[in-house]
Every structure is written in C-alpha cells, then in structure tokens.
Design a protein around this nucleic acid. Structure first.
Length: 441
DNA sequence: TCTGGGGTCCTAGGACCC
DNA sequence: TCTGGGGTCCTAGGACCC
C-alpha cells in the first residue's frame, strides 16, 4: 500500500461538518418557555394549518412533517400535544445567533437553511484532539450561547456529512456527534445497510420508490450501484449523489449565497375566496412584499408571474389553477409598477364561479448561473483539475478499495473486485469514465 | 418508401430541499 | 370545517431559425 500517496491526498481532502439544530422551531419556543421542555408539542404553519415542527415526543408518536393539525386532534387529546403558531421573526433571529457561534470556529461556512450550516473543517482540525472533540465543543458552545441543541455530522462530502448528521440524531450512542470519515469501514457499511435509501440527501419519495423496486433498499445498496447506470436512469443529479456517497466531494461550500433567481410571495387564504376584489387585495400585498424582497437583494425584475388556485384537497369541487407572466417594459424594483402588473395579470386569469384557496406573485430574475450540465465538465479542462480528479480516484481506492464489504441484508461477503464490477469501476487505470467525474462549483 | 439537421429559446411539469 | 411557504435544478417538447 502506498502510504505516502495516502498521506498527501488526505491532507488536502475536504472535510465537512453539518451542524443542524434539533427540532428547530420547537427548540426556539422552548428556549423562551422552559416549562415546555418535555411537553409533546408542534409548531404550526400559517393559518395554523399543518405541523411544520414536531418535538421528539411527537415524532415518536409517528406524526409526519406537514400533518394537518385537524387530523391529529385525537392523538393530541390522548397525549396532551400542545400546538403553537409559528413566529418566524424569532426563528430568524435565533438562527443568526447560531451562525455567529459557528463562525468562531471557521469562516469557511455555508448557511444552508434556517437551522443548518455546513462548515469546512479540515484546516482547523489540528487545534483539536480529533473530529469528535471538535464536534462536541461546537455542540456545547451553541447550547451555552443560544440554548439550542444541535447535532453534528462529519464526512468527506456534504452528502456524507448529512448522512452522519442523520446517524447522530437517530442513534443515542453517538452523543450528538458522528464522523463517518473516521469510522472503520465495516462499521460504516453496517450503518449504511441499516439506513433506508430514502434518508439520503437528494433522494425523495419518488426516487426511493423506484430504487426499492430494484431491490436498492439501503444506503449501502446504493453505494454498490454504478453511478453511470444511475445517471442513465435518474439523470445527472443522481450520478453526482452517488459520487458524493463514495466520498468524492462534488458539492463545494457556497460561502456567499448566490443571488436568488426567483422571488415568491404567496399565501393560502384562511377562508375560501370568490371575488376578484378579494383576490386583488392579496395579490397587491404579495406584489409589494415581493418588490421589497427584490430591493433587499439589490436587483430588478423583467417579468412578473401571478397565480391563483382553488383548494386541491377539495376533490369534489371544480378545480382551477392558472398563472400568467407579465413582461415589464423596463426592468424594475418599483412597488407600484409591480403591483399594477400583478393586478393586470390577475384580471386576465380571474374566472368567476370558483372558490380560491391561494394566490401569489413570482418575480423572475435574470441569472447567468451555469446549469449543472454546463458546469459538469468545466473543471476538467486544465491539467491541475485533472490532477484533482486523479486524487479523487486514489481516494476511492483508499476509502473503499481494501475493505471487505459485508452486506448485512444478504449475509454475504464480497471482495474488492466484486464491488468494482458492480460499481462499474473495472480498472485501476484512470479510464474515461473517471475523467467525467463531476466537479461542481 | 423516402420525410434534414442542428441550434436556441421558452414553457410546463416533475423531482428535490428546508 | 380545517391541508405552509418558500426555494433549487433538470427534462421534454414545441416554436422558430438557418
């Protein structure tokens, strides 16, 4: 085994940590009302429609994300579930406090969502005993400063960090911090075969269903497929995901949030609405809100889309959903201009005789962002980038090459060759298929 | 029986994420 | 009776052009 190669590649490999607040909205409410600790509770969406956050106790009862509140009345009575209306101003504020704490560990940070951030940590590691220690310190710091509980997942790609975070949340023995990169391979593969494929970041309901139909049930099953074959079936996003799972980082940290390509302002109505006047009122409000968002990101829009729709859950009522895009004479960020365009659009799509549930406005912004297809091969031009790909290939051999793969489900052992054959990685040479490795900005 | 071939732009729809 | 509000990206297909 070539240890010098392994040392040199390891030193430059990225390592990602995903820090994710547990039950974020619920935890925010509990910070300010400590008596709610241990109380089974949910936070509800607008109009108090569905549960958008559930406490651990409620999750344990099997309540799914997005369950309508009215559907869980019986359960709520039986188990004393409390419901709270959401307070997004509070959550936004708590979120930025968490980010402030995380920034004290490294400036290389991507705020991924209101309750999640990716940190690139390979450069700061030497100050700590190991990754687990770093993770525990992060967790403690956030708790001490904000009162919020977090879990930390660590891996060689964002997708693996996500998976690690999932394990940290699900399994108590990790004590809230899990590093799949430091884990012995047989142990990692064991966890992967015990984790459903649908838990992988980027695999939703539909794809999970199709995968399962092909006997790809667990994350480990997916690991053994060929990325090329997955691309054939599911497209380029899936291919990239497969590489990420193998420890080849394709998704880089996005430290500067890219400008939005689309701004949406929409709401459901508390009661169904029939008249154009009522719709116009809400559409005008949405247009104004959208214009405001537009100005905060310092840009303009050339076109505006208005949409209205009936309640899709009322199957026995006549359904209507329509949208129209109004081009603007000049790019604008002006509230009055956008409102007028929105109202003109509404006039064109409004139909009497329907009971409307939702209305909204979408601003279409100009973007020069390359698509994934375009950026796929962009990096592969130069020699330097080629070297990067070679390293990635080395990396695969380092990570997976020497491991004996044990499939828990089938109860069989398979060798390196088996894995390589199944994964389409036929040769230790750098063949063309590896030159197509996606490295995406 | 044969029925160009490539390119671009736009839209709708479907998948995913939180 | 009561079912969120944001976003992302890709694909397919049609119109149109040379």
């Amino acid at each position: 085994m070539n240890t010098s190669a392994s040392n040199s590649t390891n030193s430059t490999n990225p390592l990602f940590a995903l820090v994710d607040v547990n039950n974020f909205y619920v935890s925010c409410e509990r910070v300010f009302q400590p008596k709610l600790e241990e109380v089974p509770m949910v936070v509800l969406s607008n109009n108090d429609g569905c549960a958008v956050a559930r406490s651990a106790e409620v999750k344990a009862l099997g309540v799914k994300m997005g369950t309508p509140w009215f559907q869980m009345q019986d359960l709520a009575k039986k188990h004393g579930i409390k419901a709270y209306s959401s307070n997004y101003t509070l959550y936004g504020d708590m979120s930025s406090r968490v980010v402030q704490v995380l920034k004290t560990f490294t400036p290389n940070l991507e705020v991924y969502s209101i309750d999640e951030s990716f940190l690139q940590i390979e450069t700061v590691l030497k100050q700590y005993q190991d990754t687990i220690e770093l993770g525990q310190i992060i967790k403690q710091q956030v708790k001490d400063t904000t009162g919020l509980p977090v879990c930390v997942g660590i891996g060689a790609s964002k997708t693996l960090a996500k998976l690690a975070n999932h394990l940290a949340k699900k399994h108590k023995q990790f004590a809230g911090v899990c590093d799949v990169n430091a884990m012995a391979k047989p142990e990692l593969y064991q966890w992967m075969s015990e984790t459903e494929v649908g838990e992988v970041w980027g695999i939703g309901k539909q794809i999970a269903k199709k995968l399962k139909a092909q006997k790809i049930q667990s994350v480990f099953d997916l690991l053994q497929t060929s990325p090329q074959a997955m691309r054939q079936q599911f497209g380029v996003v899936m291919e990239r995901l497969c590489y990420e799972l193998r420890g080849v980082s394709c998704l880089q940290l996005e430290e500067v949030a890219p400008a939005k390509q689309q701004i949406i302002a929409s709401r459901s109505f508390g009661k169904l609405v029939t008249s154009q006047t009522e719709l116009a009122e809400s559409v005008a409000t949405h247009a104004a809100r959208a214009a405001e968002k537009l100005r905060t990101q310092n840009s303009t829009t050339g076109a505006l889309t208005v949409f209205i729709q009936t309640n899709p859950f009322k199957q026995n009522e006549p359904q209507y959903h329509q949208s129209i895009t109004i081009p603007l004479a000049d790019p604008s960020d002006n509230t009055l201009t956008l409102t007028n365009a929105a109202l003109a659009g509404l006039k064109q799509i409004y139909q009497t005789g329907f009971r409307y549930k939702k209305a909204g406005v979408i601003l279409n912004l100009i973007s020069d962002k390359p698509t994934l297809q375009q950026s796929l091969f962009e990096d592969i031009e130069s020699k330097g980038k080629s070297a990067h790909l070679m390293k990635a290939m080395d990396d695969i051999n380092l990570r997976f090459g020497n491991a004996v793969i044990r499939s828990a489900a089938a109860g069989t052992n398979s060798s390196k060759q088996d894995w390589q054959m199944r994964s389409g990685n036929k040769s230790p040479n750098y063949t063309t298929q590896w030159d197509e490795l996606p490295v995406v900005r």
